[in-house]
Amino acid sequence: MIPGIPQPRALRWLWRAYVAAFFVYLALPLVVVCVFAFNKSQFAALPWNGFTLDWFIGDQRPWLGVFNDRGILEALKISAIVAFWVSAASVSVGVTTAFLFVRHDFRFKQTLYVLMLLPLVIPGIILGISILVETSYLANWLEDATGLWFDGLRPGLTLVVLGQFAFIATFATLVISARLEKFDRSLEEAALNLGATPLGAVRQVTLPYLAPAIVGAALVSMLMSFENFNTTLMLVGSDAPLTIEMFDRMKQGSTPVLNAVSLLLILASSVLGGVALALRRAR
């Protein structure tokens, strides 16, 4: 009930207890992940055997820390490369598509707009297998026709980038269009009157105005790419990004090195998320 309406005291306390319990529930899994990154034990489990930094800096098996674990470092590098390309492609297409839908009228605009939103409602696994089917058939056909090899169309990082881009571009478009819609076009007209070329006006007036949205979209795209699992799982080849590498280890059971990676991921994504949120506030 709202504060303006009197409530029995017991009910108010019960209510507060519920809300508090909810936030404990939200925090609990992340807290245990972080805490066990510092436990001097081969397993992420109680009892507490004392504090250690081995899961970060240890260099001797089985006490191998993140910073010395080649598998993890390699996977991290792959994830970063994928995130970079996905983010660059999504933001570029996001900008052009935002201009298209906000500034132009053309036939089938509504149909295309709905089609552009569809990736949001396609389950990630399905998006992954559909692209897998398409590219495999294309590769088979091309190889039959030309006798050459088309490894880029076989499961691997190119497909992972394409698969993630297919739905992350929608988010980038929505974020950038939202800001473009608020842009006052008379500013651009003023630039044109002062002798700017149309492209110059867009570059010097509109794009700087869009900058917070573009940076925000880039950060969100990177975060989504880094954390994506479903689409990546279906398209991945022999080079595993971090989520896939961690998933494999989780299934087999692993040392708390996983907790250490997770802790670093939580920190990194909090910073990214915080910056993205601050950018949104600033708008």
Partner: peptide, 24 residues
């Protein structure tokens, strides 16, 4: 506080539940 836990990836959150719920 509602938003923040979801910046961590689903994998990390699920791992947290595994640590809480498993036999050990």
């Amino acid at each position: 506080a509602c938003l923040a836990p979801f910046w961590a990836s689903e994998l990390v959150r699920t791992y947290g539940w595994m640590i809480l719920l498993r036999e050990s």
